[in-house]
Design a protein around this nucleic acid. Structure first.
Length: 391
RNA sequence: GGGUAGUUACCGAAGCGGUCAAACGGGGCAGACUGUAAAUCUGCUGGCUAUGCCUUCGAAGGUUCGAAUCCUUCACUGCCCA
């Protein structure tokens, strides 16, 4: 095992909030493996790079010989959406939750070491609690403490409602820490408050409080809002190499610098041309989730398509002409079947009229066109997407 | 419980009897320019195999030749008072 100083250096790298450094050092000095907790919500199972930031940190703990404890919030998921003004989601069924948890962990093990991960479901203890026990748990915290949380306070100031179950949330999450006896809890910076509650509950229970370690929130591809599936500004960890590479290339230079630090722990070299830096960043990400070979191939194909603009020799998805052979129908189905993009007839008309559609390099702007399709033609749908036609 | 203001498309917000598929802004999409960057400029942005047809302005009814606009009831939300 590495020395405490070495561990401290690695573990604190890239961390946004650490409470506190002394506690962490003290725990490490004992030389016993730490229990590093991460709680996840099995509501939306698809992992993206935003989640990976904290998972990578957890992986680091594993590499240093510590124990990862992954808590699947099956109990919390059944209650519904905790922090939010968002509309109440339909409560998930038991089966959905288990299926989600499976997808989640399968993807998480692309990053984490499965053999060194303890997986627990918090329903195991919460489903057994009696109401009296719930009340006792609530007695451990004060209203004032809960109201310190910024989003509760804001909502109260603005006269918006705060439901009582919402203020239970931090308590529930905090109790998890007591049950699993965590030494460190990881999370995004938005989890700071909840993780702190865990500390309080542990102290109240005579345990040594956990160290709080919050990772920065990764912005999505737009560079403004946090990466999330619903905003469609994400890169999923199980996306195809070409897809990943392309998405990475579309980010802004500013965002590239952040990604590089958060995802790779490396700063961008200002001497290198930004595009070159971006390609190398994209390739590194692809090789992390696929392989070095896949990354090299993705890069080469990308260069063929976009730098050399040589669509003919690029590796393009194929589209089989179906029942509809008119231009609108073909474009619409090609989007749907090859790129999973739903476009309405109006959207497609617009694309055609605005000169987005090209067949073998020729723009087609006539909405009513019905080209005679032949095998191997290249249909360009927009700047980023093209397909090879099969008849 | 009382009073009051509101509920319009992805979001914010105009519209207050016909010229409304609904101004404007944001967001989104596409094109031009580029490095699939940023910035900028231009166009589009309910659905439909489409010079027309269909479904929208919280919900349901009603008045009218005609309703997002007027009336009634209901639901929800904010604010003030208790």
């Amino acid at each position: 095992m590495k020395s405490v100083d070495e561990q401290m250096e690695l573990l604190t790298q890239g961390v946004a909030n650490l409470i506190d450094e002394k506690d962490l050092r003290k725990k490490l000095e004992r030389g016993k493996p730490l229990r590093a907790k991460l709680g996840v919500d099995p509501t939306s199972p698809d992992l993206h790079l935003g989640h990976s930031v904290v998972l990578e940190k957890l992986r680091q703990f594993q590499l240093l010989g510590h124990q990862a404890v992954l808590i699947i919030g099956d109990f919390t998921a059944q209650i519904g959406d905790p922090s939010g003004r968002s509309k109440t989601r339909p409560p998930l069924s038991r089966d959905d939750i288990l299926a989600n948890a499976k997808t989640y962990t399968d993807q998480a093990f692309q990053i984490l070491d499965k053999d060194k991960t303890e997986i627990v479901f918090n329903g195991d203890w919460f489903n057994k609690m009696t109401f009296a026990e719930v009340i006792q748990l609530n007695a451990k915290v004060t209203m004032q403490q809960m109201l310190q949380r910024e989003d509760f306070r804001n909502r109260i100031d603005k006269g918006q409602e705060v439901r009582l179950h919402e203020i239970q949330y931090p308590i529930v999450q905090g109790w998890d820490s007591v049950v699993v006896e965590s030494d460190v809890e990881l999370g995004g910076t938005d989890q700071l408050f909840n993780i702190l509650v865990g500390r309080d509950l542990q102290k109240a229970d005579g345990q040594e409080p956990q160290v709080v370690m919050c990772m920065p929130i990764l912005e999505g591809l737009d560079g403004i809002q946090k990466m999330s599936k619903s905003l469609n500004n994400y890169i999923g960890v199980s996306e195809a190499p070409g897809e990943m590479f392309g998405k990475m290339m579309s980010i802004s230079d500013e965002l590239m610098a952040k990604y590089s630090v958060l995802l790779l722990g490396e700063a961008i070299d200002p001497e290198v041309h930004p595009m070159e830096s971006k390609k190398s960043l994209a390739a590194k990400i692809v090789s992390r989730y696929h392989s070095g070979a896949a990354a090299a191939e993705a890069r080469e194909n990308w260069e063929t398509m976009f730098s050399k603009k040589d669509l003919a020799s690029a590796d393009l998805p194929e589209y089989q002409i179906g029942e509809r052979s008119d231009l609108i129908g073909v474009v619409q189905n090609a989007y749907a079947e090859t790129f999973d993009q739903k476009k309405s007839g109006g959207d497609v008309r617009r694309l055609i009229q605005q000169g987005s559609i090209q067949l073998d390099g020729e723009k087609i702007t006539d909405v009513k066109a019905a080209p005679s399709w032949t095998e191997g033609q290249i249909l360009k749908l927009d700047k980023k997407r093209s397909v090879r036609i099969l008849v």
